[in-house]
């Protein structure tokens, strides 16, 4: 952890000296505006994921082919993840010593990777097939993973930085 911490500290120091930092950190409405866009993109992910996962579970649209739900909702889900990545990076540029020095932030990134992977696996398993027990288990796991991402994201604002983090 010590060397990871020192690399992050150097990156944070470099970012803090950049013109991008001056803009994002210096204009008071930029960070709340980016966070608003970030949450709206989370809404797209959650709405899309819920519609796909509830269809796989047979809760909604039982009479429609599963493939239709995948075609309709997976593209916006992945575009929203891209928006989340972009706004997330800019948010970190504005506060380089905050999120990256909290364990919960890295847990969140791990959970996002898991959410994307599980969604991809689910889509592959469903190609041309009716959802079986494995697909249903994947759907539940996917939805819970996205919920966990939200939990981890919200806790970044409350968690303490790890020892040795820059002030």
């Amino acid at each position: 952890m010590a060397s990871f911490n020192s690399i992050l500290t150097e990156v944070a120091a470099w970012v803090s000296g950049s013109p991008a930092f001056t803009v994002v950190a210096g204009v008071s409405w930029i960070i709340p505006a980016l966070q608003s866009v970030h949450i709206l993109a989370v809404a797209v992910v959650m709405g899309s994921a819920a519609m796909v996962d509830l269809r796989v579970l047979g809760v909604v649209e039982r009479h429609r082919p599963v493939g239709e739900s995948l075609e309709r909702y997976l593209p916006p889900l992945f575009w929203a993840v891209l928006v989340l990545a972009i706004t997330g990076v800019i948010l970190i540029v504005g506060e380089p010593t905050r999120a990256p020095f909290r364990v919960i932030f890295w847990a969140k990134l791990g959970l996002v990777a898991a959410g994307v992977t599980l969604t991809g696996l689910l889509a592959r398993r469903l190609r041309g097939a009716d959802p079986g027990a494995a697909a249903k288990a994947l759907a539940v796991a996917t939805l819970l993973t996205w919920a966990a991402v939200i939990f981890a994201g919200r806790w970044i604002g409350y968690a303490n930085p790890w020892p040795g983090a820059p002030l």
Binding site: A147, I150, R154
Partner: peptide, 17 residues
Amino acid sequence: PTVESLHVIGLTLVVGS
């Protein structure tokens, strides 16, 4: 923060749907 997290899960599902 826990209630807030649940609030975000709820509101994102509201807005998304």
